[in-house]
Design a binder for these strands. Sequence first.
DNA 1: CGCGCTGTTGAAACTTGTCAAAGTTTGTGG
DNA 2: CCACAAACTTTGACAAGTTTCAACAGCGCG
Lengths: 249, 249
Amino acid sequence: MPNRKIATPISLVEVKTACSNCNLHELCLPMGLSHDEVEKLDELVSNRRRLKRGEHLYRAGEPFDSIFAVRSGFFKTDVLLEDGREQVTGFQMTGELLGLDGISTEIHSCNAVALEDSEVCAIPFSHLEGLSREIHTLQHHFHKVMSREIVRDHGVMMLLGTMRAEERLAAFLLNLSQRFTARGYSPAEFYLRMTREEIGSYLGLKLETVSRAFSRFQEEGLIAVQQKHVRILNIPGLKQLMNHQQGRG
Amino acid sequence: MPNRKIATPISLVEVKTACSNCNLHELCLPMGLSHDEVEKLDELVSNRRRLKRGEHLYRAGEPFDSIFAVRSGFFKTDVLLEDGREQVTGFQMTGELLGLDGISTEIHSCNAVALEDSEVCAIPFSHLEGLSREIHTLQHHFHKVMSREIVRDHGVMMLLGTMRAEERLAAFLLNLSQRFTARGYSPAEFYLRMTREEIGSYLGLKLETVSRAFSRFQEEGLIAVQQKHVRILNIPGLKQLMNHQQGRG
DNA sequence: CGCGCTGTTGAAACTTGTCAAAGTTTGTGG
DNA sequence: CCACAAACTTTGACAAGTTTCAACAGCGCG
């Protein structure tokens, strides 16, 4: 089993977490590949890495050479402006890829931080390009993943450009709910891994505005929220809120 | 010279606009390819298409099969919400690619509209993937282009999430200036192809706010603007405005 | 067990949106 | 080529939404 640190003896745990034995098949890069193809992909995932909460996976300005698949845990990515302003550009959970921003210049353009203890698989990008040339399915799937990221970003732009505070938070909660559902968790109950400030940064709002919107949703019986624990009581209600309001400040 | 309409005789004009004879080498997909490689790419650019101002290149919901390179002219892309709200997600000029959003689901997720009479080269995506498997340089360059789009989107998210109206407009004008410069035009003087409303939609502002910001920049001697004609008088001034203000409403 | 980080809430200030009116340019048809 | 209509832009006054500032409460980590 190839591993960057060649001298290190290979533990059973590492073998078991190769793509072919990973339960993220249907979410992650191996999606749609045949058994044989996944085994080829195994050779490519050179390295796993564990991160503690708060640790950086990479920082803006660092050289890029791998993309990362989240194996467990939760991440945020953010960009900084010279004057110190920060924008969270995304939250990544199990099976999602990190580092696509670095392909462009071979320098990472954002920071990736673990919001809880996490584990990632590093995929050296040149190897991925190599294997993509052999396995059409992998090539096509990778292109779809990049494109999906672009479409997702357009959704965030729509949110930031046209929605008011409560609509943004509703959209955010519904998006999380959907992604947790896709991973086999409850659509209606989850723990937020990020602070109000990080939610606010992602949604283009101040933390106080986020907090007030949470309180308002609770008053209206849409959700039950206590700190980071959220229970969605009325999904259709949130959807309606997101779509039928007008204008923005 | 392969062409979708096989029965159509090939005009000299069409031959002349193959990648190998196109003056967009250094901006467009053939960037960095050898002469031989560009000739292979020629075979791939199956079709040119002319569009009148206001015409749609594609619409959200239509099946995707090609990406497009802008040969001349100017485009916008936008997304619509069910309730009618619209967000312009980008403006594309010469040498830039359109349609990357469609790869993900094989359905276009946004609309692309010509803002002036324009011409595009259609590149069937499956052919591009095929040729990418042969030509590493092309594969890598295409990945960089997609990644660059992701990075650009992060920049827009930063703009929408953290900047106030005048900062957004300053950033917008500086970005246009830079892109015109890269195409050999003046960095300081250009015609806007889009309306105040379209600028506003892109920047997450109402058209009146955009108009007021233009007026304010003019009062302050940063630009001279008359309708769609813009002359930037003080580029450092705009940069400073973009970076050193704080807070947002 | 307390200190710091995080979250909540209130009141005032500020930015941007909304509505309205008038001016300007562009495009069309006679 | 002119005249008129439609589309776009500018500007003002007011309203609404979000931020700012401030105080306090709660949770969790050391």
